[in-house]
Amino acid sequence: MTEGLRIASADVVRHGVLQVRWADGTSGLVDLKGIIARGGVFAFLSRETAFAKVSVSADGRGVQWTDPDGDIISIASDALAARLNVVTDLAA
């Protein structure tokens, strides 16, 4: 995977965990529970309903959520890739 790679899709697997697919076909689970637990700007994602509203940024360079104040909170593609656990089958 190259630095700055675009994200094709991001889906919630369970609270705090995303299935991310990059444009090059790389796919895997990204565990964000540690980031959420640290609080700060990500504290609102401790609510399952907030985490479930993830979307891919328009340029594909990250995933994002809108916090209760209306601010866009994002995590860059490269940061997600650093937390990637590559899987070939979610059932495995």
Rank of each mutant, 00 (worst) to 15 (best):
M1I: 01
E3L: 12
R6S: 14
I7Q: 09
I7W: 09
A8H: 13
S9Y: 06
V12W: 02
V13Y: 06
R14A: 11
R14K: 15
H15K: 02
L18W: 04
Q19F: 09
V20M: 08
W22M: 07
A23Y: 06
G25H: 05
G25S: 12
T26S: 10
S27C: 11
S27Y: 01
L29M: 01
V30I: 14
I35M: 11
I36F: 09
I36K: 08
G39M: 01
G40L: 03
G40F: 04
F44E: 01
L45D: 10
S46Y: 03
S46R: 02
R47A: 15
R47S: 15
E48F: 08
K53M: 14
V54W: 07
V54Y: 02
S55W: 00
S55L: 03
V56D: 10
S57Q: 14
D59Q: 00
D59V: 02
G60K: 10
G60I: 12
R61N: 05
G62R: 04
D71R: 00
D71C: 02
I72M: 15
I72R: 14
I73G: 06
I73M: 11
I73Q: 10
I73P: 08
I75Q: 11
S77C: 05
D78N: 10
D78I: 03
D78T: 13
A79W: 04
A79C: 04
A79T: 04
L80A: 02
A82Q: 09
R83L: 11
N85C: 04
N85V: 05
T88A: 13
D89I: 03
D89M: 05
L90W: 04
A91V: 12
